[in-house]
Write a protein that binds this DNA or RNA. Structure first.
Lengths: 111, 111
DNA sequence: ACAATTAGTAACTATTCAGTTACAAATATA
DNA sequence: TATATTTGTAACTGAATAGTTACTAATTGT
């Protein structure tokens, strides 16, 4: 379980996306995170390790506990990647929408 | 090479992201796509099959050739997922920026 | 008709991945 | 001090992944 480690690979797993969702607005220790899933605690621990290694989750040690929280900054990379295509697809969809509206209008006029 | 097939898993692979990039603005047949990579043509064919199965690439048959193009609509899912956290990270980063500015100001005043 | 081009797929391999259980280390509590 | 809690990690398993080569099918060009 070692090799490529980037944000895109990290968010490919649905469990990890769910962990990000849970940790997005509040800090939580590892056991509490694990309670939300059917998989074992070590499995969740590994997921959090991966998320931490690519910066998606930050960890604050407090005694024997480790409080985890989603790190907003690292999500920018994903947003920016998707967003670069946004202008492009928006243009296409706007054209489609316009087309559908025209067709709708024509149908109304026929009546 | 079969099972989960969703947009997030599809874009996890760097080769597939590069294929999307290449096919974002122009249509291209499979061999032409393959020329951009060091891997074999069948390997590229499989990547495109995966991209097609989750809607990220559309294929138009024309004789023996198959013209491939990135499909903007399916990328929205990724954009929306990342964007839901945007307000959150923006808030955090603005706070950080403000903090740095304050520190900078203080340093200026000390001189 | 024959040769060349374009592409899909089968069969195989090596690596990575997500999960498990078992154990050890550190900290907190009785 | 003894015990319970929180966590990380090692060792293992089975499935998925990304790649390969070899082959076939369909279409195009000579």
């Amino acid at each position: 379980m070692e090799a490529r480690r980037d944000v895109f690979q990290a968010i490919a797993d649905p469990t990890r996306r769910e962990i990000i969702n849970i940790l997005a607005h509040r800090s939580m220790n590892l056991n509490s995170v694990a309670e939300n899933f059917d998989i074992s605690r070590p499995a969740v621990s590994k997921h959090i390790k991966i998320l931490n290694e690519c910066g998606l989750v930050v960890i604050h040690k407090k005694g024997r506990e480790r409080y985890c929280q989603a790190n907003p900054a690292s999500l920018i990379e994903v947003w920016e990647w998707a967003n670069q295509y946004r202008a492009f697809w928006k243009e296409k969809l706007d054209a489609l929408e316009l087309l559908l509206k025209e067709e709708y209008k024509e149908n109304i006029e026929k009546k």
